[in-house]
Amino acid sequence: MDPKIQNPKSKMQWAMVVDLDRCTGCEACVVACHAENNIPTVGEEQATIGRAMHWMRVERYYEGEFPDVRVKFQPVFCQQCDAAPCEPVCPTYASYHTTEGLNGQVYNRCIGTRYCANACPYNVRFFNFYNPVWEKPLHLQLNPDVSVREVGVMEKCTFCVQRIKAAEIAAKAEKRELKDGDVQPACAQSCPPKALVFGDLNDPKSEVSRLAGSNRATRLLEELGTKPSVIYLRRESWNDGKES
């Protein structure tokens, strides 16, 4: 790594591994994310013009023509880049790099320039074009652990930072270190085929570290130099049972 880069090195480097061979595109992660993170539904009118908010989305791409069609599902969410293009462009430090390798989004600092969303090559940032409202009593479903973002504020996947913080506080209260699997973002928690695995990349024994070493590992738009913390494991083709 470039020695000039001064992202503070802490014990933690949170990362997610997405196994595209396991992902079935079922959208469980999408709804789990909505439920966990108080993401508003915007309604048909707004969704039609492109203001639907899905911190987590499952991109699908078709390959080939009938009848030789294959589909690729690819869950995309904030890649929590180490050299994130969204961070330096924010004039108010609303978007910044946390000590645990996350791209923090500080809602109260956000003035809504939307520059970060432009700079983000992954289009994973979502903007509150209006103030969200939950029709009573839908507001009772809101997760008290997570802020409700107001109008004019940018938001995005946080790797469920509230769960990370809660696990850290719990571990500290019990005077122990965090261990692999203590933190599960809502998406990874819900994923039926276990396509999403979350953990600390700095811990060589963690599941993510193991999977990140796979020869199928790649990162999204790596050539842009963003150093994402999300590792995709390529989808395989059937190889007649032989070892790849």
Partner: peptide, 23 residues
């Protein structure tokens, strides 16, 4: 359920409506 209405359908990515799939 609005969450399900607004979640994109896995293949069509459509929300809040019906559609007719045609080759």
């Amino acid at each position: 359920l609005p969450w399900l209405q607004e979640a994109p359908d896995p293949l069509s990515t459509a929300m809040w409506g019906t559609w007719l799939e045609i080759n």
